[in-house]
Design a protein around this nucleic acid. Sequence first.
DNA 1: TCAAAAGTGTTCGATATACACCCATGC
DNA 2: GCATGGGTGTATATCGAACACTTTTGA
Lengths: 233, 233
Amino acid sequence: MNTHVSVDCVVFGFENNELYALLVQRNSPKPSRNDLKLPGSLIYQNEDADLAAHRVLSELTGIRKMTLRQFKVFTSPLRTASEDDAKWLEYAYNDKIERLITIAYLYLTKINRKLNSVSKYATVEWMPVSQLPKMPFDHNLIVSDALEEIRNWVEKEPVLLFELLPTKFTASDLRHLYEAIYGRSYDVRNFHKKMMKMDYICPLEEKQEHVSHRAARFYKFDKVKYNKRTVGL
Amino acid sequence: MNTHVSVDCVVFGFENNELYALLVQRNSPKPSRNDLKLPGSLIYQNEDADLAAHRVLSELTGIRKMTLRQFKVFTSPLRTASEDDAKWLEYAYNDKIERLITIAYLYLTKINRKLNSVSKYATVEWMPVSQLPKMPFDHNLIVSDALEEIRNWVEKEPVLLFELLPTKFTASDLRHLYEAIYGRSYDVRNFHKKMMKMDYICPLEEKQEHVSHRAARFYKFDKVKYNKRTVGL
DNA sequence: TCAAAAGTGTTCGATATACACCCATGC
DNA sequence: GCATGGGTGTATATCGAACACTTTTGA
C-alpha cells in the first residue's frame, strides 16, 4: 500500500482578545479563497516528524528555535476522500497518493512577529478561530482538537502563554488570553491575585498612554525567574 | 518512499501493588526470550489507526469493547535501524519495509482477565514495568512515554482506575494503585478521606478472609453513580 | 462631567497536608 | 502475645469563588 505521512501545523496567535490560526493558501491550478488550509508537508525520507514540522514552520516564519507539540495523528482512510482534495494532492505532489495520514502539531507565537517574505504559498494569513473557513481534508477537525490540546499544554508549561503575548502586556491582556483559552471568564480581582502569585510576571513602571480611561500598567515575563521556580509536585 | 504505518499497544495491568505490561513474543526464525515486544500490527488498507489497535487487542484478549487512547507517534527514521529488527520485519511481513512509523496506544485492563487461548504469538506474558527486558525497535521508550500518559488519562477519566482493579478491591489496593501510577506515597488517613469523597466507590459488607491481620473491607465501583456525578468544570 | 476600563480586600468553603493510636486476625 | 496491616479525627495552610466601590484618563 502506498501510504504517505505528512505533518500539519496549527499555529495560534492572540490579538484583540481572540485566538487566531495561521492559514496558508494552497497552490492549485485554479486558486481560490476557498483553498485556505493548515501549513504542512509530507515527511521527507530522512527526517522524523518533529523535524518536518520544524521545517514547515521555519520556512513559513523564519524562526529557527521553537517549541512544538505533536498532539494527534489523523488516520482515517476517508480523510482524502473528497475529489477536490485528491486532485490537489496529485497536483501538488505530482504523484498518486492513495492514502495520507497526518501528524498534527501545535505551535504558539506572537501574532505580529513578521513572517518570511517568501514562501511557497500565495497567501499566508491569520484568521480568528471563531470564523475559520471550511478547509480541505480534516483541517477543521485538527484545529478543534488543537484548541483542546492547548489547555493541556499550557498547564504543563505556562511559559507558552507568554509566547502569545507581546513583550509588554497588561493584566487584562493576560486575563483575556486565559479567557480565550479556557472559554470562560475570570473575576478581575481573583485574577490579579492569581497573577501576583506568578512571581515571574514582573510589573514595569511603564503604563499605557493615550487611552481614554485609566492607563493600565505593563508587565513583562521574566524567563530567569520562571526557570528558577520550583515546579510543584 | 515506501513508508509503512503500524500501531503498537501498551497494555497495563496491576497486581502485587505494581504495574505490569503485556508483552508478546514475536515469531521469528529462531525464537528466543529476547524477542518480547509490544503487541502491534501494520495498519490495514481500509482501517484507521484506532481500528487497527482494537483489532490487535481483540485478537489478543477476546475483548470487543474497550477504551483505548492514542498517545504518541514514533517516527524516527532510525527506529528500524537495528539489523535484527530490519530482518525481523522482512521475515514477518514478507516485504521490504524501508521505513516504519508507529502510532502508540494505551489500554488498561484487569490483569487476571483471561486472554484468548489462540493468538498469532508464541508467548503472551505480563512483565512488571520495573523489570522490562530490552525490547526491539523503540518499544522501551514507548512504554516509558505510556507511563507518563497514564496520569493524564486517569485524571480525565478516573473510571480507568477501576479497569485495573478487580471487581472487589480494598482501600489499600486503590491506594497502592495511585502510588504506582503517581510514583509517590499517600498518607493512609488522607487517602481514605479522598476515597470517601468519590461516592461512586461503594463499601461492601464483605471483608477479606484468612489474612493474618485485621481483615480489610471490600469496595466496588458503581458505574451508574460514576456517570451521574457532575464533572467539575 | 461623563464614559470606560483599571485597580483593589475580605470572607467563605473546599481541599490538601501533617500527624498517632487502637483494632482485628492468624500464627 | 506478638506481628501484621486495617482503620480512624483534628488542626492548619492553601486555593478558588463570590462580591462593590474608587481611581484615572481622554473626550
